[in-house]
């Protein structure tokens, strides 16, 4: 087996990845070498997986792979419904007499990667999900007037922060909540009240306030607007809330635009037991980065990009460009599995399966229908997958981004189809 592994590892090419199975299976211990890994800049925050061993979570609260993928599906459905709504609204935008209902909630299930930030004076450390698919930053707040779920760190208490203040009703920041959350703000004894609801029925409601946000010891944001949640329920794991990295004026990207010039970057680790980073500002962006343009005409929340073509094992898939352009494309840090238009998925899956015939197939799981039983292998050879984005920017997906490992006997192609070509 060792000799076969050496032979496989020596045969790495642009058409195949050779992967050690142990490198993609979920780890049970936080990787101490990655913990000590130097962050790329003083403005970088450590990123950990929500259900990985680097975040203190009760084992009993860890979801199964099927549950995780079901949650992912609910996020995808809600993204599609939001974009459909936005498209319908744009269609009628020029007709004054047409009145559409307000967006029925932001509809975004919780993402999977966390950063720890400090809130208040003195600061309290809070682990927040970071999400490029939503705008509002919120955390659970004492006294939890209605309901708080169990979180790993102590719940933020605004009465113990000298810099906290509530935002008054009718102020520009309060009025901005309508576009940031999809819901009109409420008012309680002149304090602005926010409400954000997600597609899986998770929600947070509370007072809209501002306080000092400490990203790193050298990066402090005074008067940062955020939601102080008094009624919080849903699939947020044991995190303290969420940090919104989309494009609305209330997102952290826009609130810190003077400090960081509306630029941020992240790197997600290959395993959930390792750490990555989230960095604000341009200074530490690698010169080797290849760019594709955003389309900013479709609302302020999602980051729309263009996908032009896909390659499997170095061979271009025969997919009509209209397959990708019909409904468009977004990038999202909170969706786990990439969703493709049905025709693109079928072409990708068939090409992948064709090059994987030497491995026994395994049982499908949830939305993943192309799984392999690698229990008898230490190392496997899988075809490369590349995507051409707008501007002819070709990106080779890392080996760890092609497979989703539930167990050694159930390692699946980490792509899934949308239910409809127009999704």
């Amino acid at each position: 087996a060792a000799a076969a592994d050496r032979k496989l590892l020596a045969s790495e090419s642009h058409e195949f990845h050779t992967i050690k199975l142990s490198s993609i299976l979920p780890g049970s211990v936080c990787d101490s070498s990655s913990q000590g890994h130097k962050l790329p800049s003083p403005s970088s925050l450590k990123v950990v997986h929500k259900h990985g061993p680097c975040h203190k979570t009760k084992e009993s609260s860890l979801p199964s792979a099927s549950e995780l993928l079901a949650t992912d599906e609910s996020r995808v459905k809600s993204i599609n419904s939001r974009i459909s709504f936005s498209a319908a609204r744009n269609t009628f935008a020029s007709t004054d007499s047409v009145r559409l209902p307000a967006k029925s909630g932001s509809s975004l299930g919780a993402g999977n990667y966390l950063v720890q930030v400090g809130l208040g004076t003195p600061k309290k450390d809070l682990s927040l999900i970071f999400d490029t698919g939503s705008d509002l930053t919120w955390t659970q707040c004492e006294p939890c007037a209605r309901s708080c779920y169990d979180q790993a760190e102590p719940i933020f208490d605004p009465s113990k922060s000298s810099a906290y203040s509530n935002v008054s009703c009718g102020t520009p920041a309060c009025n901005q909540l309508k576009s940031a959350t999809g819901n009109s703000p409420g008012c309680n004894t002149n304090t602005c009240v926010y409400g954000i609801q997600y597609g899986d029925q998770s929600f947070s409601v509370g007072f809209f306030g501002k306080d000092t946000l400490t990203l790193t010891p050298t990066d402090v944001v005074p008067n940062f607007f955020f939601g102080c949640g008094q009624n919080n329920q849903g699939l947020f794991g044991q995190t303290a809330g969420l940090i919104g990295l989309a494009r609305d004026p209330l997102s952290i990207v826009q609130q810190t635009s003077k400090q960081y010039g509306q630029v941020f970057s992240y790197c997600l680790p290959s395993r959930s037991s390792e750490t990555g980073s989230l960095t604000f500002g341009q200074s530490y962006v690698s010169k080797a980065v290849k760019y594709t343009p955003f389309s900013s005409s479709q609302g302020t929340t999602f980051y729309f990009i263009d996908v032009l073509a896909m390659f499997v094992g170095g061979q271009k898939l025969q997919i009509s460009p209209t397959v990708f352009s019909t409904a468009g494309s977004i990038i999202d840090s909170g969706t786990v599995i990439t969703r493709l238009p049905p025709a693109a998925y079928t072409a990708l899956r068939d090409a992948f399966r064709k090059q994987m015939t030497s491995y026994p197939m395994g049982k499908p799981v949830s939305i993943l229908d192309t799984c392999y039983d690698f229990s008898k292998y230490n190392t496997v050879k899988i075809p490369t997958i590349s995507i051409i984005f707008g501007g002819n920017t070709k990106i080779d997906i890392d080996g760890s981004g092609i497979l989703y490992a539930v167990s050694s006997s159930q390692v699946c192609l980490a792509f899934a189809p949308n239910s409809d070509a127009s999704d």
């Binding site: 995808v76 980065v289 760019y291 980051y303 494309s329 977004i330 990038i331 990439t338 995507i387």
Partner: peptide
């Protein structure tokens, strides 16, 4: 829509240049 999810973003430096209206990918970012 096609949604480019986080599994496929692993190990890349993903750069959101919102002011410049562009998204960047850098191989082996972590």
């Amino acid at each position: 829509v096609l949604i480019y999810g986080n599994v496929q973003q692993k190990t890349m430096q993903v750069v959101y240049d919102v002011a410049g209206n562009k998204l960047g990918f850098g191989a082996k970012g972590c």
